[in-house]
Measured scan of single mutants.
Amino acid sequence: GQVHVGDTTYHFPNPEEARKFAEKAAKENNLQVTQHGNTFKVE
């Protein structure tokens, strides 16, 4: 799974890890998570 936060892309071998990371980043920054397959975008 990939997580895009601003201009930075994080790669995770496990989509579940990617999702947890995205949700945590979104919560900390008052942002939203959008999911496209195994790619998550925090914005």
Rank of each mutant, 00 (worst) to 15 (best):
Y10Q: 03
N29C: 15
E23K: 04
V33F: 09
V3W: 00
H4W: 13
Q32E: 09
H4Y: 11
N29P: 03
F21S: 01
N29A: 13
F12E: 03
F12R: 00
T34I: 12
N30G: 14
E28Y: 09
A18S: 02
R19I: 04
V3I: 02
D7E: 11
L31P: 01
A26E: 02
N30F: 07
V3E: 00
Y10I: 08
G1L: 05
N38D: 07
P15L: 15
P13K: 11
K41Y: 15
Y10W: 06
P13E: 13
N29E: 08
Q2T: 15
E28F: 09
K20T: 08
E17A: 11
K24M: 11
T39V: 14
G37N: 06
L31I: 04
T9G: 02
P13D: 14
L31T: 08
Q32H: 12
E43P: 03
K27W: 09
K41G: 06
H11D: 08
N29I: 06
K27Q: 11
V42D: 04
F12A: 01
N38Q: 04
F40T: 05
F21P: 01
A26R: 02
K24W: 13
Q35R: 13
H36L: 12
G37K: 05
N38G: 05
T9I: 15
T9K: 09
F40Q: 04
Q2K: 13
G1P: 10
K27R: 13
H36K: 09
G6S: 05
G37I: 02
H11Y: 15
N30I: 04
F21H: 03
A18I: 00
N14E: 06
N30Q: 08
E43Q: 11
E17C: 13
V3P: 00
N38L: 04
A25N: 06
N30L: 06
D7Y: 10
K20S: 10
G1F: 15
G1R: 03
N29W: 12
N14V: 04
A25F: 15
K27A: 12
Q32M: 13
V5W: 15
V3Q: 00
N30S: 09
T8S: 11
T39A: 10
V3L: 00
K41H: 15
P13S: 13
A18W: 00
T9R: 08
V42A: 02
K20N: 09
H4E: 12
G37L: 05
F40S: 05
K20M: 12
P15M: 15
P13V: 10
T34R: 08
D7S: 12
E16G: 06
H4V: 15
